[in-house]
């Protein structure tokens, strides 16, 4: 398996209960997995644990055969090679779109940087906005910049935290189709977290339903949500 998460548990400081309890998940290369749950179910915490922003109390995470965290070792978030699209995008306000996307291209030569920025901006259809600042863009455009920035360094895994929560409903439907197209085109393994059942069904190859830190259901969209009409995307 490409991603292997075993017995993962996590408890926030001063909390009485585990936020994540014995979480197991394996993902194949190129798969899009959706973690679906209500707010407070611990779904965003899983992304923070995978990316290394939090240290689990228990369990291990392997990505592409490399140990990210277990009982004794811990790889710093900056060394994991994981891309993340934050819920509110977290685009650096003091940098232009181009500078934001270029930011993660640390070990590239100057020319490589330029061509890679061009490539990903082209992919999200934002080439003409390269010199704008984040606050000069619409919500949907900002989200695409965040996606471009996360994809630019060719991460081994892409995490998306509630990618549509800040968008209008009609924009959401349009963008989720686009998102699936872009992700599938790059072939990148992705995990995205959502509280919207339609989002899950529209994009994911595999859905994990999480309740109070425990997996209650797992499988492909038809298995998890049977008897529902197909979604348009």
């Amino acid at each position: 398996m490409y991603v292997e998460i075993n017995n993962l548990s996590f408890r926030y400081k001063n909390a009485n209960e585990d936020t994540i309890n014995n979480f197991n998940l394996s993902i194949e290369k190129g798969e899009i997995v959706s973690i679906f749950g209500e707010s407070g179910s611990g779904k965003s915490t899983i992304l923070r644990l995978i990316s290394g922003l939090e240290l689990p109390t228990n369990g291990s995470i392997m990505i592409n055969g490399k140990k990210m965290v277990d009982e004794t070792s811990f790889v710093m978030p900056e060394n994991r090679g994981i891309g993340m699209v934050f819920q509110d995008y977290a685009l650096f306000p003091h940098m232009t779109v181009k500078e934001n996307v270029k930011f993660g291209l640390k070990n590239y030569s100057k020319n490589e940087k330029l061509s890679r920025v061009k490539e990903v901006l082209n992919m999200v259809d934002l080439e003409e906005f390269a010199e704008r600042y984040p606050h000069e863009l619409s919500g949907g455009q900002q989200q695409r910049v965040a996606l471009a920035r996360a994809l630019a360094p060719n991460p081994s895994l892409l995490l998306l935290d509630e990618p549509f929560s800040n968008l209008d409903a009609d924009l959401q439907i349009k963008i989720r189709g686009e998102l699936r197209r872009i992700i599938k085109k790059t072939g990148i393994t992705s995990i995205f977290v959502t509280h919207d059942r339609e989002d899950s069904r529209a994009i994911a190859d595999k859905i994990v339903i999480l309740r109070k830190g425990i997996i209650t259901k797992i499988g492909d969209p038809k298995e998890v949500f049977p008897n529902e009409p197909p979604v348009w995307c």
């Binding site: 993340m84 934050f86 509110d88 650096f92 930011f103």
Partner: peptide, 21 residues
């Protein structure tokens, strides 16, 4: 903290993040 976290995930350590972000 979100900009800090974004920068960490884009490959920069705490000190680099401090100066750049």
């Amino acid at each position: 903290k979100k900009f800090f976290e974004a920068s960490r995930l884009l490959g920069f350590n705490i000190t680099q993040t401090f100066f750049k972000v």
